[in-house]
Computed example of a mutant assay.
Amino acid sequence: MSVRFGWLTACILLFTCIHPIYAADIVDRVVAVVNDDVITLSEVNQEGKALFKRIAEQVPPDRLEEALQQARQNVIEELIDKKILQQEARKYDLKVTDEEVDRALQRILERNNTTMEQFRSELAAVGMDEQQYRENLRSQILSSKLVNMEVRSKVIIPEEKIIDYYDTHYMERMGDGGYYLLQIGINVDPNDPDPERARAEARKKAEQIREQALAGEDFKELARKYSDLPSAADGGDIGVFKADEMAPAMREAVISLKPGEISELVETSSGFQIFKLLSSKQGQIVAKVPYDEVKEEIRNILYQQETKELFDNWLKKMRENAYIKIL
């Protein structure tokens, strides 16, 4: 089926499934009532234009009518929600200016690194024009203002929830036990004509870095900044080692540490190393990422989840209290 013929068929089936008498003479009509507002056939067609076009292009002919009927129902339900949001926004005299829409659209273009001309071309490809997109954007901004007023102000994420999420998603249980380590290495310059002086300078540098770590500076940042080892790119993260996998000097420095502690300097043939123990076999659990690094990220995830749940419940209540009739 060609795109053109498919789209024409989609339109005919869409109008036919609304009511048989309109197949020959299509006119606009009310398809749903939401309190004091109505949803018209033309609104449904405009709102679902891109969706109906995509269905016409992708769905086999023998399933097209059923798919369009379901799509039409989904669009009507979305428009009902939109009407309810608009009605609630009017109660609070909430409005969205053209300037707000312009700014939101500009942010979208910048985020997607595209021009207005490219954007319009992409809209046309899915059967939508700029004006329709702007109106949809206006509706989204209005909804966001309403959600800010009705829902988001009620969202509170306690520390306990953040910790629970962290324990579930960022902690890993180790069946055989092990030591999860960060590492900083300072190498002796092999080309220095005075090897003893070079080793002494490397030791002094390593000791200074260890003092900074003991003073509370971020170990990963110190590793990225000063370490001469390949693990520097990962903030010194070398993963989990069992005791028998470590070199003797490394094992001796690490096994007595408690999680969070910094080792003494470990001297090697190439220089000096410092280790930080994140988790040990005693707990049988290792942290994939330090808590402080992901705390705000987790808070945002939980905030979005909580906001969506509250919004869904709020909208469900609004629908239950509204007069809604689909014709």
Rank of each mutant, 00 (worst) to 15 (best):
I156W: 03
M250F: 14
A249D: 08
E172N: 12
E221L: 10
H169L: 01
V147G: 09
G239S: 08
D164W: 00
Y166G: 06
D167T: 00
E196I: 06
E221H: 05
D167L: 04
A215F: 01
N187W: 06
E160N: 00
E207V: 10
S227A: 09
H169C: 04
R173F: 13
A213H: 06
M246G: 13
R152M: 12
D176W: 09
E245G: 15
G185H: 05
I186G: 13
A206M: 14
I186F: 09
A232T: 12
K205M: 14
K204T: 11
Y179T: 08
E159W: 10
K225A: 11
P230L: 00
P248Q: 01
A249M: 07
P190V: 09
A247C: 07
A202H: 11
A200F: 13
R197W: 00
E245Y: 12
P248F: 06
D167M: 02
S227H: 01
M171W: 08
A232R: 08
G185K: 07
E196H: 07
N187F: 13
G178R: 11
A213I: 04
A249G: 08
D192N: 05
E150G: 09
I209E: 02
E201I: 05
V240C: 13
N191M: 07
I163Q: 08
R210V: 01
K161W: 05
V151Y: 15
D194Q: 06
Y226E: 02
A213K: 06
E196K: 10
G239W: 09
A202V: 12
V155T: 09
N191H: 07
K220E: 10
Y170R: 04
R173K: 04
Y166I: 08
L181E: 12
V240E: 11
A243D: 10
R173Q: 09
D192E: 02
D228Q: 07
